[in-house]
């Protein structure tokens, strides 16, 4: 699969053909999802209408974690098989992941204000996502910090893997810290059980997010492929002139 897509011409050919369908599916799932989330689904018996924020908040959190796993896996492939396309995919996915992380944090904050009475609460999950945000930031910064791009992608790949090992540890430690400092008197954000009428919009939105992410990922990979090509042409052009 990786070898098949690693050829830029073939990658462009395949993705150009699949792009309209993917974008269409993204639009379809998101529009049905939003209608279902805002109109069809019932308000929560405890939280009222604020529960509707969940339908963007929770899928964003899923995407944030999912994309970080994607980055870790592609980074591992890149390091083990020295596959430049794998590094490229990881690099292209990072801005998408950080966008969903920021969405998760801001919508979480907007949900927290009416529920907890504060924009920020040191809830274990919110805090863990905040550190996930910094892991993303470190990955992106390290990627761009070198004059030689291939050096940056390797360092960043190692960092992504170390971070990936560390994510559960951070989550565990923050959970632990949270129970230590805040006795569990808060209303849990998502309650014990979710009714099926709430699951439908949740999954629709998640599917929509996934398809959007695929579209953006493909576009960003194309950008990076082009950048690489331009860089090579500039180097070769410079040789031609001299």
């Amino acid at each position: 699969m990786f070898n098949f897509l690693a050829n830029p011409a073939r990658f462009n050919q395949v993705t150009d053909r699949l792009m309209p369908a993917t974008a269409g599916l993204a639009g379809l799932f998101l529009s049905i999802g939003i209608i279902s989330a805002l109109i069809i689904s019932p308000p929560d018996y405890q939280q009222g209408d604020t529960v509707r924020i969940m339908y963007v908040h929770v899928p964003s959190a899923w995407m944030a974690l999912f994309i970080y796993s994607f980055i870790a896996i592609t980074s591992a492939i890149g390091l083990i098989w020295r596959h430049p396309f794998a590094h490229l995919s990881a690099q292209a996915a990072a801005p998408i992941g950080i966008t969903f992380t920021i969405l998760c944090l801001t919508t979480g904050s907007l949900w927290g204000k009416p529920m907890w009475g504060a924009w920020w609460v040191w809830d274990a999950r919110l805090t863990s996502v905040l550190f996930l945000f910094f892991l993303y930031l470190g990955f992106m910064a390290l990627n761009k910090a070198f004059d030689d791009p291939s050096r940056g992608e390797k360092s960043a790949a190692i960092l992504a893997l170390v971070g990936f090992i560390n994510v559960p540890v951070i989550k565990f430690s923050v959970d632990w810290w949270n129970t230590l400092h805040q006795p569990a008197s808060l209303l849990r954000a998502d309650g014990p059980a979710i009714h099926s009428s709430m699951l439908t919009p949740l999954f629709l939105m998640a599917l929509g997010f996934i398809f959007v992410a695929v579209c953006v990922l493909v576009t960003r990979i194309k950008v990076l492929l082009l950048k690489r090509r331009i860089r090579l042409m500039r180097i070769n052009g410079g040789k031609l002139r001299s």
Binding site: I34, P43, D49, T50, I53, L103, T106, L110
Partner: peptide
Amino acid sequence: MGGHAYYIWPAYIIA
């Protein structure tokens, strides 16, 4: 939105 418009709409707009 049951009095929570200030929180729900910005969330959707930001997303």
